[in-house]
Every structure is written in structure tokens, then in C-alpha cells.
Write a protein that binds this DNA or RNA. Structure first.
Lengths: 321, 321
DNA sequence: GGACCCCCTGCTCATCTGAGCAAGATTCCA
DNA sequence: TGGAATCTTGCTCAGATGAGCAGGGGGTCC
């Protein structure tokens, strides 16, 4: 146990020095006088205290990011870019999601080159990204849906609203994918897919210069269950087969592979390969329930840019508390 | 709600600057280049971030103290000295108690002038202080008990052991008060008190050059209940009368006044006045259950030096989270 | 016991940072 | 709109800090 660890006298001194330096903001010279040390010794003690991790500096702000985690994430995974928002002082998962969506909106706004065509998925997270975007975030961006929309219940308009909102605020137009996300029969899906209007949208989606999408966890709270495409039982069955979550409506396992080829065949939208090969594929994922999907997505290269929260990032790095 | 607060652009900039400064440790000049600002502006943003409380610096170490809280406590209460241990990263109340006891041992060791006679009470906390003291912490200190000891059950030896241990490690002798803490009848108490041996100890106690004592909360977990001097019901009755805890066996209310004069008359040991007038009266109090007593003790001048944990200190200052 | 090596100490010097100041910008009234 | 008051900006300069280096003390290995 920690308590029994021997604390050498330099360690204690370094703590005393740190108290005076950080809490009382004395100069190293003053501290030297107080503790009967040279100021150089004090400097070294402080460096030691920092190096030992006794000094914890946190930036407590809803817009704070964790640059060090971002860097480690980039290095460990080969992501082009990583945006990690701090979870310091966050009470709820909603707050975390909101912060992450905000960060995604910021990233999108600053993205260069500005995408001509932006392919997006739908869901609560994407919706919130739309809300956080500022009017004029881009000057003429075409937004195209990359997977079938919500259409089976009262929340029918959400997916469309998200696309329209993002497009509108970016002074551009939205192209909707007029199809359900998952069809009951393969033939139906193929029929819709080959419809000229739908095919045109899919072509546009395939040619998008950037993608922005989220992911869903594999449980009864999934948006696909909520929208009526799948039952809780069907999702449970997918979990048994190894599903950790879905991305653009397609369920993947922890290696990023399709879990159920039959189901996937009936799912309408761009292929995962499309995302894997895209230069700018931005995944926005937040909340503790999505650690597993996030890991799968990043691990299998399904996104090139990840916007997420600190805890999820640490989970991907295998450093969760 | 916080979320709706407008975040002006300088605030955001100051957060970006802080991230680069504290997480990536860039120089203010570098940050200036990155954010297209002069280095002076960066310095000001950083200062602003600090002033707004966005930068939280914590010293995470079992021996860390909170000097700023100590200072505020001294200023607000007129204590001669205050020692406040950090409760950062503390899981249990035991851990807190242990840290506080350690700090008390440190304080005692560094106390100048070294007390010739040290009056002590007994209890779990004092016992632990004894454990943390190092062999040779003083060179010939006489330890004298200032209130009647535990003697009604199996833990009979604890009080004596504490005194002996503290004295022994300080190369001195212990003088025990050979009496129960509370007597059933006033006459018995008076009789014991006037016994030559007991009177001699009490005289010694009254003349002590420093006092070290703890406090007990007023509930069924009190050491006095545990030792069999009082029943849980009696304590409950005292609480109804306004008791917040006990100090050297005497129950006080939130103003530091004796709650039950009859009971107090039957309690053997030095008077509270004695502590109030002592130049060096060190109270060691830790744990959330003792906030109320701590407040009463400090508020009514029953100690001149307080050793406690951060949460208790904040409670005394009226700033509890 | 002596030679050697390594780490720690205290130093110089260059860089970084904060205080204070004057000029310019902005706001706020009349 | 004018003018005063206030805030902001970029600066100088002095103080604070970190990097790197030479010397000394202590430990170690023959």
C-alpha cells in the first residue's frame, strides 16, 4: 500500500517548496531562504516534484482541450488529427457530449481546405454539432447524407434537419438521402439503391471531400433501436456476435469488421471502405458508453480525425483510470 | 445555467494559451507566434485565466499542505497557527486522519520553544500522532495526561500507551492521570480530585507549557461511548441540549460552552479555561464528522493552534463545497 | 588504501516573464 | 460631434528562471 512507501527527505522538501511556489507564489529565491537552500536546489526540487507527478495542473473550462492526450493519441494511432476535450469538472454525460460537439464544430469551422462537399451521418451528436456551428462557418458547403435517415417515427425530421442546418449555416445546400437506414429485404434495398435519384445521392456521397459522422453504442439505447429499425433483441443478438457499436448504420466488432453481413447488405449508405480511404473522415464520439466503439473505429482506421472526450481518449490509449 | 453564459473571445484565447503554456510547456513567445499575438498579450491572457480560476494547480501528495487555507484560517480566526493538510485524492476518512496526525507530529517536532511539559488528552487521533512521531523528536519532554483515561473496557491501555509512547520517543517520562474520565457521582469525583497523587498530576497538567488534544464528535461513535462512560442515549440527550462534541471529555455546544454543568462537574481533568488561556494549545481534528466541533473549538478560542484537514478548515471558514 | 566514477552542488549566462509606463484606441456622456 | 475618462496595447527594464558546466564529495571496486 502507498502509505508504507518510504518518503525520502528530498521528496518532502520538494513538496514544501511546491507549496510555497504554487500556493503562496513566492520566488525560488525566497523559498531558498525559508528552507535554507540555494535557489538552484529549489529549482531542482520543483522540477523533481513536477516530474514525479506531484504537481497537477488542470485547466477547468468547458472549452478546454487536452493537448498532451491529443498528441499521444496521434502518435499511438496514426490519426491525422485528434481533438480531445477535457472532462475536468463534468457532471453528466450530456455535458460531455455537448463539449465534444462544440469542439467538433470548432474543428469543422477551422478545417482547411474548406470541404466543397461534406458527407454526414445523423444522430443526437451530429445534431448537436449542427447547433454549435455558427452562421457563416463556411461559404457555400454542400452537405450530403451518407446513410439512410430516420423515418420510422415521430423524430422523422431530425436527420434532415441536421443536414439542412449544417448546410444552411455554411451558406450551402443539403442533399438528403431519401431512404430508410435499414431495409427488411435485400431486394428492396437493391431496388432503392438503383433508383436514379438515390443513386445520384450515393454517388455524391462517395465523392465527398470530407466526412463527419458519429457512432452508436450497441445496446437498447442505440438510435437505430430508438428509430424502430432494430429491436432490442436484435441488438442483443448482434452483441453476442461481437458487435461493439455502429457507424453509419453498420454494426462492427472490436476489430472494425462487419458483424452481420446479411444485415449489412440491407443497410443503405456508403461503405465503410469509403471512410477508411477518405483523407478527411471526422468521427465525433463522446461518453463512457461509446469507449468500445471508439476504440474499434480508431483501431481499424475508420476515421482519420477523432473528436472526443478525455475519458474516451484515455480508454483508446488503454489508460483508463 | 452555466452553458448559456457568453464566452467572450478573449476568454477562449486565454484557454488556448493556457493549454499551450501548461500542457505543452511552450514559452509565451512561442504561443504568441502560434496564436498571432504579441507575447505581452499572451502573458496577460494567462494572468487573466489564472485570475478567473480556470487554472487549477494541485499538489497531490499525502504530505501536502494547503498554505493558502492556513493563512485565511489564521486571519479569520485569530489562531496563532494553523496547519491544514490537503485532502486531494483522499479516499477514506482514515487516510485523512492519518495525514492529519502526521502533520501534527511534524508540527510538534518543529515546535519552538520545545515544551518542557506537554499536556495531552487521549483517543484514536492522539494515538496516531504518537505513532507518527520519530524517535528523538525531543530531548526530554515530560508528558502529562490532562483528562481521565480509558479504563472501563479492553482498550484500557490505549490512553496510557499513547502518553508513554510520546514521552518515550521524546526521551522523557509520562505522568498518567490515574482516574476515570467521568465519575458517576460528584462526591466521588471530588474525592479522587483531592487525593494527593491525583492532585499532583492535575497541578502538573495545569502548569504544562503546551497542550495537545483532539476532539470527539457528539454521536454514538464517540470514544466516550465506546469506552463505556456514556450510553448512546445519554449522548443523544446531550445533542438535544446542543452538544456538538467533546474536548478533553467535556461536551460543548456550538459556542464552546459547557452543555451539561452536572455532567461536567463529574468529569475529571483540566478545565476548558485552562486551554483557553494557554499560549500553546494544539488541537488535532480530522474528518467530516468533526466539522461542527472543530468550528466550536476554534470559534470559542479553545485552541491557539489547529491541525486539521482541508475540508474541516473550509467548513470552519464557512466555505464548504 | 588508492584510484576511479558518478552524482550532487553552486555557479555563469542566456532566456523568459512580470511590473510599470506612455501612447493609442474605445467608450461614454453631454 | 467633441472631449474626457477608461481600457488596451506595445514597449523598457529588472527580476526570475532554466540550461549547461566545472569542481568536490562520497561511494565503489579492485
Amino acid at each position: 500500500m502507498e502509505r508504507t512507501r518510504v518518503i525520502d527527505s528530498d521528496e518532502l522538501l520538494s513538496i514544501r517548496a511546491a507549496e510555497l511556489y504554487y500556493e503562496e507564489n513566492r520566488t525560488q529565491d525566497e523559498i531558498g531562504t525559508l528552507l535554507r537552500l540555494t535557489r538552484w536546489k529549489v529549482g531542482r526540487l520543483l522540477a523533481q516534484a513536477k516530474a514525479s507527478g506531484f504537481i497537477r495542473i488542470e485547466i477547468v473550462h468547458p472549452r478546454a482541450r487536452r493537448l498532451s492526450v491529443e498528441r499521444r493519441l496521434r502518435e499511438a494511432t496514426g490519426l491525422t488529427d485528434a481533438i480531445v476535450v477535457s472532462s475536468a469538472g463534468v457532471a453528466s454525460d450530456e455535458e460531455l457530449q455537448s463539449r465534444t460537439a462544440q469542439a467538433a464544430a470548432d474543428y469543422l469551422t477551422g478545417l482547411r481546405p474548406v470541404p466543397r462537399t461534406l458527407g454526414i451521418s445523423w444522430g443526437r451528436t451530429l445534431h448537436e454539432v449542427g447547433l454549435h456551428l455558427k452562421q457563416g462557418w463556411a461559404h457555400g458547403v454542400n452537405v450530403v447524407q451518407i446513410n439512410g435517415g430516420v423515418s420510422l417515427n415521430r423524430r422523422a425530421g431530425t436527420a434532415a434537419a441536421t443536414a439542412v442546418s449544417i448546410a444552411h449555416k455554411g451558406a450551402g445546400a443539403a442533399t438528403l438521402l431519401p431512404s430508410p437506414a435499414i431495409l427488411e429485404r435485400l431486394e428492396t434495398k437493391q431496388a432503392i439503391e438503383s433508383d436514379r435519384a438515390v443513386a445520384a445521392v450515393l454517388n455524391l456521397a462517395t465523392a465527398a471531400s470530407a466526412y463527419l459522422f458519429s457512432a452508436g453504442q450497441a445496446d437498447e439505447n442505440s438510435a437505430l433501436v430508438d428509430s424502430g429499425y432494430l429491436t432490442a433483441e436484435q441488438v442483443a443478438e448482434l452483441v453476442r456476435k461481437g458487435a461493439v457499436g455502429d457507424i453509419v448504420g453498420r454494426y462492427i466488432d472490436s476489430n472494425g469488421n462487419i458483424v452481420d453481413p446479411d444485415l449489412d447488405g440491407r443497410t443503405l449508405g456508403i461503405q465503410l471502405e469509403q471512410l477508411r480511404q477518405a483523407k478527411t473522415a471526422i468521427a465525433v464520439i463522446a461518453g463512457s458508453s461509446k469507449h468500445a466503439v471508439a476504440r474499434a473505429i480508431v483501431g481499424s482506421g475508420l476515421c482519420s480525425i477523432l473528436v472526443t472526450d478525455e475519458d474516451t481518449a484515455l480508454a483508446i490509449l488503454g489508460e483508463e483510470a
